[in-house]
Design a protein around this nucleic acid. Structure first.
Lengths: 345, 345
DNA sequence: CTGAAAGCGCTAACAC
DNA sequence: GTGTTAGCGCTTTCAG
């Protein structure tokens, strides 16, 4: 059975306290352990196969050294990369516990309540957009004093630190890159949503088009709730291309809110004999790994998502240590990656 | 600050014990709570915003109601699907904590030690293949009495329950399907590895070829350690196609150990003007989501990975409850999905 | 039907 | 330098 501090203490002939401090290598206050004692304790512990009991330590220490990470979905590698950044940053002191809400408010609620029950020391979360849960976020932050750092999107009414990539600049740059290739008639394929960050994509597009004097060519095709259910995406893709075929003059480029939707659009083009990029350029906005596959080669906009995780974790740790609470905001740069689905006109 | 049972007890004018039982809706032994009391307690708890302290409950109850899930990698949706199955099965009593080792023995060790420290009630793990950690697995199982269920691969020397898809049948069926399309010269592109499950893929191929009287056409191209590092895969893919081009008679079909490698092979074919499937059929073996993308349409072999998770969780729960320990083995069926990269001869 | 009390294994004052 | 002790918030006997 599991070895306890007490057993080690007995065997080493010292007190439980000494063992506790020795094993954690800490000497708070005036406490100074003699190297001999420490060494002996370490030996005994090792020989007995001691494994710290994190549960007891958490209860006694009033800190769990875990942080709750709530993401929208695992699919694709978006959050995998973010999570990796978080891990690297907090390792080895803290360990992240992962939760996924899939945009389902029920799940989101459960996971957040779980975080409270588990008494995580901090939370990094991607809000689902569902207003019902806002109060819960507030409760976590205010009642339980658990610091929260948001990724990707804000929560209306809550002033919390946020880390995200530059959504405005993403579409803004994409339009400009397309413009440089000679495109003038660029349609934006987006999503309507109550999430602030969708607005930013919209704004980036609009602003760029206006700056370039292309306001008359602005065209937006959008749909609610296209959260990457394969079937929904496919239908949307079909609609997009049908609409495109009917317009005149036709757009020479499609700028698509996410890469997975773009893949479906590529598929529809293929089926209808529309040659990409000869007949139409297609560009995604959230560079996913299949995009760089040689058979796809989707042009897209890349961001260092690991850095998102890293920064979020850094902010969170600061807050955990200092109990500080200014709502910092970190916006990270993005980079256009031109591949094979866009061509110069 | 956090509300405790004691506070509720005081406010409701009952004892802490009663509150504890009331909130958990349990009446063990001869205990029977009067509906009135229960109702009042529930009310008070609600009004005070009580959130159970999972840490304290775990320490006192000697169970954490968490299970450690250790997977090889998140990339792709393999483990996402497995994890989802696990979640569904254990919800809401247990909650899984996710860990990833990326085939790195250091990480694997850390994560397993973490599981011990956190005193998870059970472990579901995909072994990295690294012998160094076998003793740790044994320690978890034997010293700490934490039940383990393996997914995908066994651990040499340990008799543990295992859930996986039918690897032998995967390649066996793939060969047969290709045969039905008229292919006789089928090359297997695999990985050499000390992992048992790679052997199974090999065997399935060999056996099928022999059964079909194709032993003279057997050809295996393989490489060590092709664990889906984009660059390694690309190089391997190049080598595969170069080798294929030189042989005579050329294989009419390539059966590739994993879909991501197959994507790269598709890419090389494209670059060299080899028309797939006209000039060469390509088939993957672990149907990943990009495979069904219209622009890829890779033929592959699908399995219900959610079911893998579900079964593993079910086995684990049984073991947690009953402390049983027979090394059950569950092998799940697979299904060939023919898409656009294979053609009848 | 309900309460008192003994832990769970550890941390961190507070002593000496 | 080291030990004593009071909790952390809960579960679960055991005693009414």
């Amino acid at each position: 059975m599991a070895v306890t501090l007490k057993q080690i203490a007995e065997k080493a002939g010292v007190s439980l306290t000494t063992v506790s401090f020795a094993l954690r290598g800490r000497q708070p206050g005036k406490r100074r352990l003699s190297p001999n004692t420490v060494e002996r304790i370490l030996e005994v512990a090792d020989e007995m196969g001691y494994r710290p009991n994190h549960v007891a330590a958490s209860l006694a220490g009033k800190r769990t050294f875990t942080i709750g990470v709530l993401v929208t979905a695992l699919r694709g590698d978006f959050y995998e990369r973010v999570l990796f950044g978080i891990k690297k940053e907090v390792y080895p002191e803290f360990s992240p516990v992962l939760a996924v809400h899939n945009y389902n408010p029920e799940y989101e609620k459960n996971e957040l309540e779980n975080f409270i029950s588990k008494r995580v020391d901090g939370v990094i979360a991607a809000f689902s957009g569902h207003a019902d849960n806002i109060e819960l976020y507030r409760e976590i932050n205010e009642k339980y004093n658990i610091p929260i750092v948001l990724i990707d999107r804000r929560i209306p009414g809550l002033e919390l630190p946020l880390v995200r990539t530059d959504h405005f600049d993403t579409s803004h740059r994409a339009v400009n890159s397309l413009f440089k290739l000679g495109h003038r008639n660029i349609t934006y394929v987006g999503v309507v949503d109550n999430l602030e960050y969708m607005e930013l994509f919209n704004d980036g597009y609009r602003t760029a088009m206006i700056e370039l004097g292309l306001e008359d060519n602005m065209k937006i095709v959008s749909q609610t709730d296209a959260h990457r259910n394969q079937k929904v995406l496919k239908k949307f893709a079909t609609r997009v291309i049908s609409a495109w075929e009917k317009t005149s003059p036709q757009a020479t480029a499609l700028m698509v809110i996410n890469d997975w939707l773009a893949y479906e659009i590529l598929g529809v083009c293929h089926d209808r004999g529309i040659n990409v990029p000869q007949g139409l350029s297609v560009m995604g906005l959230d560079d996913c790994s299949p995009s760089e596959l040689p058979t796809i080669g989707l042009s897209s906009v890349w961001a260092d998502l690991e850095l998102v995780g890293k920064n979020a974790a850094k902010l969170l740790l600061e807050r955990i240590e200092n109990n500080s609470n200014e709502p910092t905001r970190i916006i990270l740069p993005v980079h256009v990656r031109m591949r094979k689905t866009t061509r110069p006109l």
